[in-house]
Design a protein around this nucleic acid. Sequence first.
DNA 1: CTATTATGTACTCTTTATTATACATTTTGC
DNA 2: GCAAAATGTATAATAAAGAGTACATAATAG
Lengths: 111, 111
Amino acid sequence: MGKKIRTYSSRTSQALRLLASLIKAARKRKGWSEAELAERCDTTRGTVRKVEQGKPGTEIGLYFEIANLLGIPLLAEDSGELSEIQKRVDLQLSVLPQRVRTSSEEVFDDF
Amino acid sequence: MGKKIRTYSSRTSQALRLLASLIKAARKRKGWSEAELAERCDTTRGTVRKVEQGKPGTEIGLYFEIANLLGIPLLAEDSGELSEIQKRVDLQLSVLPQRVRTSSEEVFDDF
DNA sequence: CTATTATGTACTCTTTATTATACATTTTGC
DNA sequence: GCAAAATGTATAATAAAGAGTACATAATAG
């Protein structure tokens, strides 16, 4: 019942590798050591290291926090844009049925 | 020594909320139930649920795998673009010093 | 060249996420 | 309206992540 041996699609691994590299490069450009970065985001070198290696098992909160600290934008360029997109998606969600049912397979909706 | 009570910046929470909403909306547009999505990415409803709530403690691999499965692009539109950016970052990394040292603080480099 | 320190690696301990499961509630197709 | 299925909520068990620490190796500033 504990965790399970998991495999990831090549696309997922690829994206994780890239995010990891972006983080490592950004840290070095800022001239921070692994220990320094770890301290700044209140974690340990071990965890920073996992993030910079793109390990899939690491919690997303740390990835995002580190990326944020290093100025790497995720999903949008700034907070304002994030809010805008959020509003649009919320609107979409409000018009979708609360619950999905069998017949409604394959809805073509371009987003 | 175990885990630590962690706080996240508002920007991190905001990005996670958005990613969660994008995932939920995409799943509904596809007409998949939580259980269906869980099965497709070899996990459980409980975990899918955490992802759709933007919980920061959940592993990034699952977020990415789910996003991928639902056709939500991360960091780049397609695999080819991911490779391109990866090459550029690798080049950047190769010209940066292998180890960061004290004096090299605050390097201005526009990426 | 040498001293310093960043990085690589390994280990234990503790907390937590994930799995698996069950059941109540609520939406919705018919 | 009714039945079926999706969603909401809860629990126990267990594998794994993260914290903390230590030390070897290697790069680099001086």
